[in-house]
C-alpha cells in the first residue's frame, strides 16, 4: 500500500531532516515507528500527509502504486490517508459534527458521489462515536476548543472511524494521556483495524504498543531508519533505552 524508497526531505527553513527512508507497509499491517525526540518521526508523517511546511527533496513516495508527490493534502486524504495529529488545532465556532459532515461529503464528491443523506449521516456519526467511546456531547462542541489532551486524541480517533481511511498514521497519539485514556484510544484503533487497512503508529514510548500490537517496529534516528524488528524490539528499547542502538550512529 505505502512504498517509500530513499525518501529525503527538509523543513521550509532549510534543515535536512529525513535522510533516506525506506519503508513498505502492506494492507493489514501495523508498523510502529519509534526513536528519540528530534529524529524526524513527525516529519515523516507530515511528508506522507503532504504538509507544505516540509519539502521532499528526493526518493519516491508511492501510495497504492501511485506517486503522490504532486497531490495536495486533501487529494491524499480522499485517496485514503489519515493523519491523527500530535497537536490537533482548534477551530472555534465549527462543531465536531459540522466538521466531520463536511469532510465526509467532500470525500464523496471527489468520488463523484452525492452527499450522504442527513438521516444516514446522523446515524453513522452516532454509531462511530459509540464505537470509539466518544461522549456524544462532544459532537456539538467547537472542534477541539477547550478539549483536554485525551479528549482531543479521542476526537481524532472518532474522525478516523467516520472517514474509514486505508492508511492511518497516528502521530504520538499517546503523548499526554493517562493509562485509562490510552486504553480507550487504543481500543478504538483496534476496533477499526481490518485486513484491508494499515496503521503506522508513531511513538516515543513502548506502552501504547502493549495495546496496539505492531507487526513491525522501526527505529528512526537522525532521519534514517537504523533498525527494524518485530514486537520484541519495542520491549528491548523499553528496557534498555535508545543509547545502545544509537551510539553507533552518533
Amino acid at each position: 500500500m505505502l512504498e517509500i524508497k530513499e525518501l529525503t526531505a527538509r523543513s521550509d527553513d532549510g534543515n535536512d531532516i529525513l535522510k533516506g527512508i525506506n519503508l513498505t507497509v502492506r494492507p493489514g499491517e501495523v508498523h510502529a515507528i519509534m526513536g528519540p525526540n528530534g529524529s524526524g518521526k513527525s516529519t515523516l508523517s507530515s511528508v506522507i500527509a503532504g504538509n507544505p511546511k516540509f519539502i521532499k527533496t528526493g526518493g519516491t513516495l508511492r501510495f497504492n502504486g501511485e506517486e503522490i508527490d504532486e497531490l495536495s493534502p486533501e487529494e491524499r486524504a480522499h485517496r485514503g490517508i489519515f493523519l491523527s495529529f500530535q497537536y490537533p488545532v482548534e477551530i472555534p465556532g465549527v462543531s465536531v459534527n459540522n466538521f466531520i459532515k463536511t469532510a465526509i461529503n467532500e470525500k464523496r464528491r471527489s468520488m463523484g458521489l452525492e452527499d450522504m443523506p442527513a438521516g444516514e449521516l446522523l446515524r453513522m456519526i452516532k454509531e462511530k462515536a459509540a464505537l470509539v467511546e466518544l461522549d456524544p456531547r462532544f459532537l456539538s462542541r467547537s472542534l477541539n476548543e477547550g478539549f483536554s489532551g485525551g479528549e482531543k486524541k479521542r476526537a481524532e480517533i472518532f474522525q478516523m472511524a467516520a472517514l474509514a481511511p486505508s492508511l492511518a498514521i497516528l502521530d504520538e497519539t499517546d503523548s499526554g494521556l493517562d493509562i485509562d485514556a490510552l486504553r480507550i484510544v487504543a481500543n478504538g484503533v483496534n476496533k477499526l483495524k481490518s485486513p484491508e487497512n494499515a496503521t503506522i503508529v508513531i511513538t516515543h514510548y513502548q506502552r501504547l504498543l502493549d495495546y496496539i500490537v505492531p507487526d513491525y517496529v522501526h527505529v528512526l534516528y537522525k532521519g534514517r531508519i537504523i533498525k527494524t524488528g518485530g514486537r520484541e524490539l519495542a520491549l528491548e528499547l523499553e528496557e534498555k533505552g535508545y543509547d545502545w542502538l544509537i551510539k553507533d550512529y552518533q
Binding site: P73, V89, P92, T102, E106, K107
Partner: peptide
C-alpha cells in the same frame, strides 16, 4: 493543513473557518 488532511480543499477550509468565526 488540518482541514486539508481531512479532505477539505483550502477554499472549503477557509469558508468553514470563517463561518465558525462568524
Amino acid at each position: 493543513f488540518y482541514c486539508n488532511q481531512r479532505g477539505l480543499t483550502t477554499e472549503k477550509a477557509v469558508a468553514l473557518i470563517v463561518n465558525g468565526f462568524s
